[in-house]
Design a protein around this nucleic acid. Sequence first.
DNA 1: CTCACTTGTCATGAAGTTGTCACGATAAGA
DNA 2: TCTTATCGTGACAACTTCATGACAAGTGAG
Lengths: 217, 217
Amino acid sequence: MAHILIVEDDQDINNLIAKNLKLVGHTYRQTFDGMEAVKMITENIFDLVLLDIMLPGIDGFEVLKKTSAEPIIFITAKDGLEHKLNGLSLGADDYIVKPFEMLELLARIDVVLRRAQKNTTIFSLDNAVVNLSDRTVTVGGELVDLSPREYELLEVLIKNQNIALSRDKLLELAWGYDYMGETRTVDNHIQKLRSKLGWEERIKTVYKLGYRLEVKR
Amino acid sequence: MAHILIVEDDQDINNLIAKNLKLVGHTYRQTFDGMEAVKMITENIFDLVLLDIMLPGIDGFEVLKKTSAEPIIFITAKDGLEHKLNGLSLGADDYIVKPFEMLELLARIDVVLRRAQKNTTIFSLDNAVVNLSDRTVTVGGELVDLSPREYELLEVLIKNQNIALSRDKLLELAWGYDYMGETRTVDNHIQKLRSKLGWEERIKTVYKLGYRLEVKR
DNA sequence: CTCACTTGTCATGAAGTTGTCACGATAAGA
DNA sequence: TCTTATCGTGACAACTTCATGACAAGTGAG
């Protein structure tokens, strides 16, 4: 279940949504004001934001522009086309028009969350589990120590899974932009990762190019 | 721009959508029937499917259940809540209710496409799928290892499909401009590609000239 | 149908690339 | 200050690629 921020100036609606979220097992926080919403969103602790467009202070579009992080579902009283277009092009994940059925809102929340789940912070492959939020790695349940560079490299590989990355590219992404070192350094760290995670077969060497983390789809 | 399948039994609406897709630069194919839609979707050549729920034969929900591959936007005349819930829980990416503004449909299409990030350039032929963006090749789902030269050559063939290329030309394109070697080298690599991709019948020998990747359109 | 020529196929070894290990410099922590 | 861990470097072994040559099979002009 998810932690959801409700941004809606109408207290009754806000509470109604809150009640229903609670009912299906989500947790939430409520705010009634645009500026406060921006602050709360930047805390970065929510899995989803329900965002009313008409707000005191700054409106929902402004809030989105200022933050644009979490998945967002717009809520609006207006059915105006220009509102929808604006919201969608700004990158909202969905859109719902007041008055709406609570069940529909809950369904749309599920869809958006399910979709966002794909960008989950946990990555697992074979026996290894990489928790990208708290930077831990376990293999077969046992915690594995990775040095900082090893972890950086691992993250890069995971974020670019199935894509062949050149040594230069890896240096750029995991070491820093203009690192000027021997490219054999990359090999060494790759070896470390392979053996620590048991990924000898997973991190493929792409001859004359670099490496690729291979994940079957 | 995307290749979109329109599944809608009302000819007027179908054509109207088609016209507008064309207007903004998408390509499309049209069908008016559920069973045919299933067949076409399984061809796997569309970036997005616009799917009416009420269809002759089998309805949109059934179509989705039978295929569930591409991104899908449901279209329906009914605003019934149970329809929406059903569609969303089945995994539709979006939902639009007739009568709708064409501009809104186009905006939703953009959102879904952006989300699906079909920026991957993929070339597929028979069982083989060549992913030109991340430099991977699969045959029947299995990843195939290609050496650098083999991959270069493959790319050249794909980019010049249906065109006969001389050995000299191939050397120039895949090896580098002033490569000075025996041209028999090309033959060897062609053989490798043929057997690795199962393209014995696809890469045709053009006697006294060179080779051609044959793709029917 | 024949023969000259072209292409398919395989084996080989040289050149080049990657795996692996050990060492030492440096930084971090006690 | 001393200890410890990290990381870049170099050396060498192991491996991969790929051009080459040899020969078999295929092709087409006459």
